[in-house]
Nucleic acid binder design. Structure first.
Length: 471
RNA sequence: GCCCGGGUGGCCGAGUGGUGGAGGCGGCGGCCUGCAGAGCCGCUUCACGAGGGUUCGAAUCCCUCCCCGGGCUCCA
């Protein structure tokens, strides 16, 4: 089966073929760095992280760029409030963003590109658009004339003339209310740059096309972002780049992720209903957050609810329990009937997982394959009480390999908080408790277990002794 | 107003014309266990917002309607 990707432009799944052989160029709209990263961002960037991991797993040579919007009205407003320089504020939140990304295990981006470092390219692109007759200058800025670009609206399926409703009053100097800003003229007191049209700042959409044309050329493979960006942001990108370079398409596959909502409303900074990544990580570990998100297909909306996060945590624990059960199962040299059977099935599980991912990165189905595998493994262990050493290793490797695509199942069986002293302490407690159990002093033995449970340590008595784990 | 999505079991969530509602979470019963946990077996589960239509056959295609969300120049 070949990889199929849903393309927003055609509203259908298409076979994925990169423009240049094995090379895949992917660009994802990054954050505006004026506040902490929240779970809505996490959802999107985890989705693209999984996509990137899978593309590399499929042996594509992926070059993944994410931009950092560090020039923006919001940043300037916030900087004013806090009485710091906008760039300083942006750098601060960019650092927080990078920390959060790392903690979430999002490590697939090859290059982060700051808008502020590409003013030359931005200005050049605006110049080109004016020269080619797509843009015009007024006393307030430079604007893109959407009537000059016949394809305007092809991504969002809107007719430019119908875009008459506005939340913000359009600038009165524009030829048409739908025209969007490429350069905003500003007074010298404000943060900005010099340009052929005077002092000011770039418009919202121009940084992305200036960056992608610079690094990828006029056409590249995948452009990602959340669904809210289809219009106007991505529509404007198409208009800018295809007009400026004269080459279409700008992007071969437009990919959009569904939004994270809270009680039905979009999680967003402006609504104030957001949970920051750092707060979420205080209560749930990174793999749980990832697992929560990949349990739903990337294009579907997710309504955030802490109960669902807890469900995800329990669900992930089931997989880890299986890994632990496997690890603790006695090894044998020879293969039983069940071992042989499972050994041959491993390839099928792997193929099923890949088929799911090939179908527009269907992570919920891919995860279900992991559960089916876990189920089979547990059955064999349950029946035979032992497993061949080769099978044990193969199963364990397969979980690691497939889990690695999703960014889960990468932790050691016990948490990293484990230290030698904790381990030894528990050894002592378990030893004493088992002595009590031998003497049938169950009341005290149970009290020890219950009290440990309260502090987050679970004791489990198995046929082969007592084991412990963090809850 | 215009454009785009979505409504599946107690909950989450796959499935986009054809044997069984995948998988998970929760609950209940059984095996195992001193008990509990983990795991296994079974049940909870003949569902697809409503009403029409097309078809041998519709959750899936078409029409109308209801509800929810997103976008319409701030946004992952």
């Amino acid at each position: 089966m070949v990889l199929k990707v849903y393309n927003t432009l055609t509203r259908s799944k298409e076979e994925f073929t990169p423009l240049h052989g094995n090379r895949v160029n992917m660009f994802v709209c990054g954050p505006t760095v004026y506040d902490y990263m929240h779970l809505g961002h996490a959802r999107t960037y985890i989705a693209y992280d999984v996509i990137a991991r899978y593309l590399r797993y499929k042996k594509y040579s992926l070059f993944y760029i994410m931009n950092i919007t560090d020039v923006d009205d919001k940043i300037i407003e916030r900087a004013k409030e806090k009485n710091v320089h906008p760039i300083k504020l942006a750098v601060e939140y960019e650092n927080y963003f990078m920390e959060d990304m790392e903690r979430l295990g999002i490590n697939t981006v090859n290059l982060f590109v700051r808008a502020s470092e590409h003013l030359e390219e931005i200005i050049n692109q605006v110049k080109t658009l004016i020269e080619k007759g797509y843009a015009y200058e007024t006393e307030t800025g430079v604007y893109y004339d959407v009537t000059k670009f016949l394809d305007y609206g092809k991504l969002s399926r809107q007719k430019p003339e119908e875009l008459s409703q506005h939340r913000v009053d359009p600038d009165p100097t524009k030829r048409h209310p739908q025209d969007f800003a490429l350069w905003k003229k500003r007074s010298r007191e404000e943060f900005g740059w010099d340009s052929p049209w005077g002092y000011g700042r770039p418009g919202w959409h121009i940084e992305d096309t200036a960056i992608t044309v610079t690094y990828f050329g006029p056409t590249y493979d995948i452009h990602g972002g959340a669904i809210e960006l289809i219009f106007p942001h991505h529509e404007a990108e198409i208009a800018q780049a295809e007009a400026a370079t004269g080459v279409k398409p700008l992007v071969r596959y437009w990919v959009h992720t569904g939004l994270l909502t809270v009680r039905g409303e979009k999680m967003s900074k402006s609504l104030g209903n957001f949970i920051t990544v750092r707060d979420a990580l205080k209560k749930y570990d990174a793999e749980t957050l990832r697992f929560f998100f990949i349990l739903t297909h990337y294009r579907s909306p997710i309504d955030f609810d802490e109960q669902k996060l807890e469900q995800a945590r329990e669900s992930l624990r089931t997989l880890y329990n299986t890994l632990q059960n496997l690890q603790e199962t006695e090894q044998a040299d020879e293969l039983t009937e069940e071992d042989k059977n499972l050994q041959t099935k491993l390839q099928q599980f792997k193929q099923k997982f890949i088929d799911a991912m090939d179908d527009d990165f269907n992570t919920p189905v891919a995860v279900s394959v992991l559960f089916e595998l876990a189920h089979e493994v547990n059955r064999v262990i349950q029946k035979n009480k032992r497993i061949s050493s080769k099978l044990k290793e193969d199963v364990s490797n397969l979980f690691k390999e497939l889990g690695g695509i999703l960014g889960i199942l990468q932790k050691p069986i016990r948490k990293e908080a484990e230290t030698e002293i904790v381990d030894k302490l528990l050894e002592v407690i378990i030893e004493v408790r088992n002595e009590l159990r031998n003497r049938k002093e169950y009341e005290i033995a149970d009290r020890i277990r219950n009290r440990l449970r309260e502090v987050g340590i679970v004791l489990e008595d198995t046929g082969k002794g007592t084991r412990w784990r963090f809850s």
